[in-house]
Write a protein that binds this DNA or RNA. Structure first.
Length: 266
DNA sequence: TACGGTCACCGGA
DNA sequence: ATCCGGTGACCGT
């Protein structure tokens, strides 16, 4: 099964289009290939927590800073493959996705090309393009709260909400957008955990979009690997759009967790 | 080669 | 405007 994955994916061809200067691609295949094969039996949640023991401080982690004009990202391989496999399995078992998620764009309703849900503090919700995603209680998926606490400790940013997107394969995707400022606490960072299939992730500056773009600014392209953490720091989301494009050569599911600090609205 | 698959990009109301 | 469809460049066969 792993062999067939390698054959179908074509580990070298994927990097062809990406500029090495801007691309983070090490470990891609080795970290992704086995995750669906590891059907380990579940342990208690407490035993999962032990996998966080060795990442209690920033010290042992190799962070990579990614900078451009008004773009500020920090990327790190937060979890080992074994840890990430376990988290992926828990996500598949515990996360319940919303049915019939639709968005309204240019006069039409569309089904979103992925599955989505959210967890968080009571009463929080996230709105975009005519859709509202209400937080399920943390207690419905306790491991998400554990990850939330871990990255809060690790980064010093406090989060109260996680948006979950599941891409069943490389056809599932997310179009270019900026996150809605009005729902987010101003100046807060967004923490993005990736589990499963590695996927390209692309940032484009607002001033470089459209036929009559004011300026020529190169896109910033990353690959988000199994078990990675990407910190999107202020003011990245003010100036840069981001997207997860279709990748026909990707066949396995990816689950993305974006931890946010939401404004409490009445 | 000429073609088909993939992808980047644009623009729609 | 987290969608889609159309267009054209590029690349591998």
């Amino acid at each position: 099964m792993i062999d067939s994955y390698f054959l179908r994916t074509g580990s070298t061809s994927k990097k062809r289009k990406l500029d090495d200067r801007e691309t983070i691609s090490e470990h891609r295949d080795s970290q992704t290939a086995g995750c669906m094969d590891d059907i380990s039996n579940s342990g208690e949640l407490s035993s999962r927590l032990s996998c966080f023991d060795n990442i209690s401080s920033k010290q042992s982690l190799e962070w990579k800073k990614i900078s451009a004009e008004n773009l500020d990202l920090d990327y790190v391989q937060l979890f080992t493959k074994t840890e990430a496999d376990s988290l992926f399995q828990q996500a598949e078992r515990m996360i319940k996705y919303n049915a019939n998620s639709k968005v309204f764009l240019h006069g039409k309703w569309h089904n979103i090309p992925r599955k989505q849900t959210a967890y968080g503090d009571t009463g929080l919700r996230y709105t975009f393009s005519g859709a509202t995603v209400s937080a399920q209680p943390w207690s419905n998926a306790g491991f998400l709260k554990d990850i939330c606490d871990l990255i809060s400790t690790l980064t010093g940013h406090k989060f109260n909400f996680v948006l979950v997107n599941r891409y069943k394969d490389g056809i599932d995707h997310m179009g270019e957008h900026r996150d809605d400022e009005t729902d987010l606490e101003t100046g807060s960072a967004i923490a993005s955990i990736s589990l499963g299939q590695a996927r390209d992730f692309i940032f484009r500056h607002a001033d470089a979009r459209g036929r009559s773009a004011k300026r020529k600014i190169e896109p910033v392209k990353l690959e988000l690997s199994h078990g990675s953490l990407l910190m999107m720091n202020h003011p990245t989301n003010v100036y840069w759009f981001h997207s997860l494009p279709v990748r026909k050569r990707a066949f396995l599911p990816r689950i993305n967790l974006t931890f946010r600090k939401m404004v409490v609205k009445s």
